[in-house]
Design a protein around this nucleic acid. Structure first.
Lengths: 261, 261
DNA sequence: GAACGCAATAGTGTCGACACTTTCTTGACG
DNA sequence: CGTCAAGAAAGTGTCGACACTATTGCGTTC
């Protein structure tokens, strides 16, 4: 596995008894939180490969913390679907196969369409205008932004719709979905197949929202999302090929679905 | 707080009843899992009251395990929205206000309608027939069953629709929603306002599925769910009144929404 | 008597250790 | 040669302890 963490250039925090420097020796009070973020990044960037067993001891050494915060982070990641837990055997990286990706995008489409509908029904004009102005403020520069910005602004757009739906559950769900597919989306944006004219659909969605045209808006959203799916699938395949470089993709078949009841 | 865990005499679909008893003989290897189930039950039954701070030491003593599995369970419950975590102050019971309940039911409605639609589009006739036979096998005895059975069979019905949608994400989401509202639903079923003629809508939904009538089926589902919401709201109010017996309900106002980004 | 420290208490966050389980290694046996 | 078993090694699950932080209670000062 051989993971080198560069999150903070603070390697070898352990085994330094000579340094009694107070500020440096202070034990961090948020190891779990940082472990969570770091591990999630490792997962989402395929540093930890799909299907692989996660070695807690190795991970804890890499992050320079004990196993306790590692396990707390892994438990959270387990309920969020990033990893699965088999009793007495430990945590495994849940493979996000192309199949699973389709399911996830379909779920996303469901959430977003519902959010749009609710927004149209509930948001007052000033709120709809927030959506319009949010998009207008970034639309011009949008196609020329670096991938990370594009991604963040796109997520912000869709998340704002969810917020304007007035249902916090939808916001939470969309946030969680975003986290799970962020890396894939980033790859897709950087992929040569990426078509930046999709911004026009955002504008069209805003128009539909202003007109409170539920049917049309949902149709646009559905198409907007579906449009990215096939391109994203190709991007995912490329990414997986890179990850499992020489091997065949046999490991991918071992799809686990151990979401507990 | 003073919690005494009497795991017995409940639904107890789980296996092992006594948690503290086993500590004397041998160390349990699944304390986290059982702590998770137990704490979730405490939450869902309002033994741990909304807004209350969760004392890990007390809890661990009650369950007869150390704080480690308690914290692992709480971390999972945090990602699932049952509790929230404030750094250095600990875990708090997230209050499920009537408002939050509405949001949750709305979310459920969205998931179920989408699942029904997908099922109609994808499931073959034999699968639809599984739904039909599932319901036919239980429909006669249904109104006279004890509440727990009614609840389980109802959940099973809706869950089967989600499964037949072919999207595991929807199954997982519905499972999670069910867990969060189970106790409320149980109260509602036992509440005098409960109307058992709602089984007719299940039959109607099956009919719509057999005819692949998406529009009508979704309409039925939406109504079916909405019908229970108002009744459930009343049941929830009664339950909360009982929980916060002498106090005013001021604690309920402190609604936390600390779902991490 | 009220506001302000300031110590004492209670509670969380993390650690290292150890018991138990799974997995790997090795060597005997067919 | 392959199979199996026993022991060794690796790894997980849980514990008790301790460092650090928040809270409470108490005495002091104005």
């Amino acid at each position: 596995m051989r993971i080198v963490v560069t999150e903070r250039a603070e390697t070898s925090a352990d085994s330094d008894p000579s340094l009694a420097n107070e500020a440096e020796t202070r034990r961090a009070a948020d190891s779990s939180e940082r472990a969570y973020n770091t591990i999630r990044k490792l997962l989402v960037e395929f540093k930890l490969k799909p299907g692989e067993r996660i070695n807690e001891v190795q991970l804890s050494r890499s992050l320079g913390v004990s196993r306790t915060p590692i396990r707390e982070a892994l438990n959270r990641l387990a309920s969020e679907g990033f990893v699965s837990l088999t009793p007495n055997r430990g945590f495994f990286v849940r493979s996000l196969s192309t199949e699973g990706l389709l399911d996830l995008y379909e779920f996303r489409s469901i959430i977003e369409c519902a959010a749009f509908k609710l927004m149209c029904e509930r948001a007052d004009d000033s709120e709809i205008d927030r959506l319009r102005s949010y998009w207008e403020a970034i639309v011009d520069a949008y196609p020329n932004q670096p991938p990370d910005i594009i991604l963040a602004e796109d997520e912000g757009f869709h998340l704002l719709i969810a917020e304007l739906s007035g249902n916090p559950e939808l916001v939470g769900q969309l946030t969680s979905i975003n986290a799970r597919i962020r890396f894939i989306r980033r790859i897709q944006i950087e992929h040569p197949s990426h078509d930046r004219t999709q911004i026009t659909s955002h504008s069209a969605i805003v128009d539909a929202a202003v007109r409170r045209d539920v049917e049309n808006g949902m149709k646009l959203l559905r198409e907007h999302i579906e449009m990215t799916v096939s391109a994203t699938q190709q991007a995912l395949k490329d990414a997986l090929l890179k990850v499992f470089a020489p091997d065949n993709g046999a490991d991918l078949k071992r799809r686990r679905r151990t979401r507990d009841a």
